[in-house]
Simulated assay, not measured.
Amino acid sequence: MATPFFIEVARRYLANMIVIDELPFRFVEGVGFKRFCNAVQPKFKMPSRYTIARDIVDIYTNEKKRQFSSSGSTSELDKYLGDIEKGGKNAQFDILEWWKVNATKYRVLSLIAQDVLAMPVSTIACEFAFSTGGHILDRFRSSLTPKMVEVLYHSTAGFSD
């Protein structure tokens, strides 16, 4: 009894073989492989490496969709994007408050948001920031020449009264 031959099934098995055995896509264009396939099944039209690459991407996409639908779970990023899309635009939106409320719901994304939204802390001491005596210019702290510093100092001296 003859076994039925289905080209689509053969192509799917060929794509799976290339993935499992980690073969290069050009494998299907090899002379020896073409001869072998022709001897085994003359009806099989050998696909190009580009077609095999597309078949593999299709298999991957379908498998990912299948796993996604069977598990019923979505990634944290997908949930976040869905919530943002549902929320719409609000002129009074406070992003810091939103993350404060939703940090437990989006644990990983909230850590990223902390890094992105964090305010840098000043390293300048308060006394230095408000004291004219603390503004010391030397060759390590300024690229201005001493003559230019003197000109700038005298040009603003009359405004400080």
Rank of each mutant, 00 (worst) to 15 (best):
E76Q: 04
F36M: 12
V57Q: 11
D55N: 14
R26V: 07
I52D: 01
I59D: 07
K43Y: 10
K34Q: 08
N62A: 08
P42S: 14
N38V: 08
N62Q: 15
G32T: 09
C37I: 10
T61P: 00
Q41D: 09
D55G: 06
K79V: 01
T74M: 12
D78I: 02
S48Y: 14
A53K: 11
Q67W: 05
Q67M: 06
Y60P: 00
F27V: 03
F68A: 02
K34T: 05
K43C: 03
S69F: 13
G30C: 07
P47C: 04
A39E: 11
G30S: 12
I56D: 01
D58I: 03
S69V: 13
K34V: 10
Y80H: 07
F36A: 04
Y80P: 02
S70M: 13
F68S: 06
P42G: 10
K64A: 04
S73Y: 15
D78N: 12
N38R: 14
V40P: 01
E29D: 11
K79W: 09
R66T: 11
R26Q: 06
R26I: 08
V57D: 10
E29V: 07
K43Q: 08
L77T: 11
N38A: 13
I52V: 13
M46A: 04
S69E: 15
V28R: 10
R66W: 14
S70H: 13
F33D: 01
S73H: 15
I52T: 05
E29M: 07
L77Y: 14
R49H: 04
G72V: 08
P24C: 04
Y50R: 14
F68L: 09
P42D: 05
A53Y: 02
D55M: 13
Y80V: 02
I56Y: 02
E63N: 03
A53M: 13
S70D: 12
Q41H: 05
F68K: 12
S69C: 09
E76F: 12
K45E: 09
R66E: 11
R49A: 07
N62G: 06
P42I: 13
F44M: 11
L77Q: 12
F36N: 05
K65C: 00
A39Y: 02
M46C: 01
K64L: 10
D55Q: 12
D55C: 11
T51F: 08
R54A: 09
V57M: 09
Y50F: 05
S70A: 14
N38Y: 14
V31A: 11
S48F: 14
F27A: 05
P47H: 14
R26C: 06
K79T: 01
S71P: 01
S75G: 03
K45R: 11
R26P: 00
K64Y: 12
P24E: 01
T74L: 09
M46Q: 06
T61K: 14
F33K: 02
R54W: 13
E63A: 05
V57P: 00
Q41S: 10
Y80E: 02
S69Q: 14
G30I: 08
F36I: 06
K43A: 08
I59H: 13
V40R: 07
R49Q: 11
V28G: 02
P47M: 05
R54G: 03
F44C: 03
K43L: 05
S73R: 15
K45P: 00
Y60I: 00
F33P: 02
D78E: 15
Q67K: 05
T61R: 15
F36W: 15
E63K: 01
F68I: 02
